[in-house]
Design a protein around this nucleic acid. Structure first.
Lengths: 233, 233
DNA sequence: GTGACGAATAAGTCTGACCTTTGGTTCCGG
DNA sequence: CCGGAACCAAAGGTCAGACTTATTCGTCAC
């Protein structure tokens, strides 16, 4: 499951990253490279590489004569997929999930509108196929099948928008949807209204109706937010 | 100006990062760590740290017996502020600026709506102050002063939204606004309509009028998009 | 043709040495 | 008692070299 798993420094990150994002070390805490190297039983070279990566994520700052200081959460590169994964694995998972869903509610409607203008015929077909897949898996507790098509659907929308920045949020949406299905209490079958909305979005995009695609997608994300409100305070 | 400038590995990144994001090496190209170390006249350790950072940005992938292979642009972590800066410095700057402005047009209105609900009294005051600063610098070619207050204004909005993900886009907006002022042809004085809109947004937030704040901000971002359309095809 | 074996290769890892910066401490003089 | 200059030690930064390991590619036998 660990994505970083490549090499020893990846193993270090898999442990240290989640610890930091979970707030195990208050901002300003200092970690010594040597001590970390001992703790993880790796050489300083490997430890240094790990620190460099954490530094590039703005999770820590390395200064001479001081050590590796943990930065406050407001400095973190929270759009780094790795950081997102670490934070979602941590304690304040609900809060994080909410932040991400709000982001979705801002981005996806606009992306859908753009997709209605820019989607290729092939992308329209994919979209329809995904929507149909969602319908087919919407009853009888086929959660995994539903999730698969749901993720694919939103990925296509974001990619078809033709915007680099939107397209790259596909992974984020995937994490959010997967989290909702796997961790949170999800009703045995998805909301039928949501399924219908997805089908209608696919229609709207196919018919190049940008305004309708945008509005329908807004309804989907509003629904997702309400679902969170029901589950979490 | 180089943000990475810390240490030798930072210097390597300052050169190699822009090269890769500029597309100097086609996707799939292989770079050898040893050769790179020779080219930059650094030790392998330093070069390895630089590669690890590039790897964490998904710009390259390091595999045994193969080398460091450059990944296609669709894999890059385009939300990494460093990557954004590198791309904005490159040749397809206009295209990148447009992507970012579209992102702004999706996020900022929603953020403004949330800010109207969540902003503290202090944040409301800051907002008004920024808007007034923009007014004061809106005539007579005081572009730098205007830019300063403009950036501050949008930062406060994004922060006041209370959403982690939105707040972190402050840097992105800053880069976009700075780019518009410094590189692109900007009229000697900013659009008076835009200035007025900012003042009105500050008002709406102060009065807790979320819908109005959102709509007004939408007008601001639409204006920013149109401005891009005029300058670039 | 196809599968297995072996050699070449480039990254991965470790070690130990030395350099550089910098925060703290001490000591002197005002 | 306070302030600044000189000093020292701690921690990261850099380097060179040796060794390990995984992976690809070529070869050879079947």
């Amino acid at each position: 499951m660990s994505n970083t798993g490549r090499g020893l420094h990846g193993h270090v990150l898999d442990t240290l990253g989640p610890e930091i994002t979970a707030g195990a070390y208050p901002p300003g805490s200092v970690l010594r490279t040597d001590e970390l190297a001992q703790r993880f039983e790796v050489s300083r070279s490997v430890m240094r590489e790990a620190v460099r990566v954490l530094e590039s994520m703005h999770l820590v700052e390395s200064r001479r004569r001081v050590g590796v200081t943990v930065r406050p959460a407001c400095d973190w590169n929270v759009y780094d997929p790795q950081v997102i994964r670490w934070r979602l694995a941590g304690a304040d998972r609900p809060r994080q999930l909410r932040s991400l869903t709000v982001l979705r509610s801002a981005v996806e409607p606009v992306a859908a509108g753009l997709a209605a203008r820019n989607a290729t015929a092939e992308q329209c077909a994919e979209l329809t196929e995904c929507a149909l897949g969602m319908v087919a898996n919407s009853r009888g507790g086929q959660l995994e099948g539903y999730l698969f098509h749901d993720v694919a659907f939103h990925r296509v929308i974001l990619t078809a928008s033709g915007n680099d920045m939107f397209a790259r949020l596909g992974d984020v949406v995937a994490e959010v949807l997967a989290g909702r299905t796997h961790h949170d209490v999800m009703f045995d079958d998805p909301d039928p209204a949501a399924v219908t909305l997805h089908v209608q979005v696919a229609e709207a995009v196919r018919e190049r109706d940008a305004a309708r695609a945008e509005e329908l997608t807004r309804e989907i994300t509003v629904g997702a937010l309400q679902e969170l409100d029901i589950l979490a305070p």
